[in-house]
Design a protein around this nucleic acid. Structure first.
Lengths: 103, 103
DNA sequence: ACTTTATTCCTACAATGTAAAAATAAAAGC
DNA sequence: GCTTTTATTTTTACATTGTAGGAATAAAGT
């Protein structure tokens, strides 16, 4: 078993997906991150991380029903798995312990 | 100027060095991290990160006066620079914003 | 001198971060 | 129905950060 800590961007992405609940697909997640953390993120960078998180079992995804308004490919919606949420908690808690008192 | 966000381990290391104040040298920093975040860290991994943080100007270092008790090489003491502390604050704050409410 | 001890430094590779451009797929217009 | 536009995902490639093992230093004791 590996069970390392999550990277910084992985935590950010998981947080955004959690916050969005339903409606967490590429562009929405990206916007959530850019607003919340004042950083610009390319869509490719985001998908790469999402794919890796899925491979680890920290997020799952489903393709949206194809009822778009104007054209465009079907959205892929992401959700954080229980394992993902647990891992996020663990990682963030460890970081907090290291920084509390000095931050 | 780059000014990206710090990685997860970089934040942990900076936190440990801050917490230790004077007396922040290799072995002590390592122990601080292992206690605080319940992870095991090799000393090599730690020095690599410390060296990189120094290259970015986030920590500084000085060699300790050679007055060891029993033998062994002189310690190198690290301190977090103002830029390092500011960057740590920035990075951690962004992460907090992304996770508050959902964590 | 040589052995022991404490510590830093080097080297190498794995994992994560990041972006640019290509590929898909659906709807609209002609 | 075929082409164009639009929204979105996928692929590919490389940079940065994470991580460990072992070599190199240097001081003290014998």
């Amino acid at each position: 078993m590996k069970s390392k800590y999550l990277g910084e961007f992985e935590m950010v992405v998981l947080g955004a997906v959690l916050k969005l609940g339903d409606g967490a697909y590429g562009a929405a997640i990206r916007q959530e991150i850019e607003l919340g953390s004042e950083r610009s993120v390319s869509i490719g960078a985001l998908y790469t991380t999402l794919t890796r998180l899925e491979a680890k079992g920290y997020v799952g995804s489903r393709l949206g029903e194809s009822t778009p308004q104007r054209g465009g490919r079907a959205k892929r919606y992401f959700r954080v798995t229980d394992a993902g949420e647990a891992q996020l908690r663990r990682s963030f808690a460890a970081l907090n312990r290291m920084l509390e008192g000095v931050l």
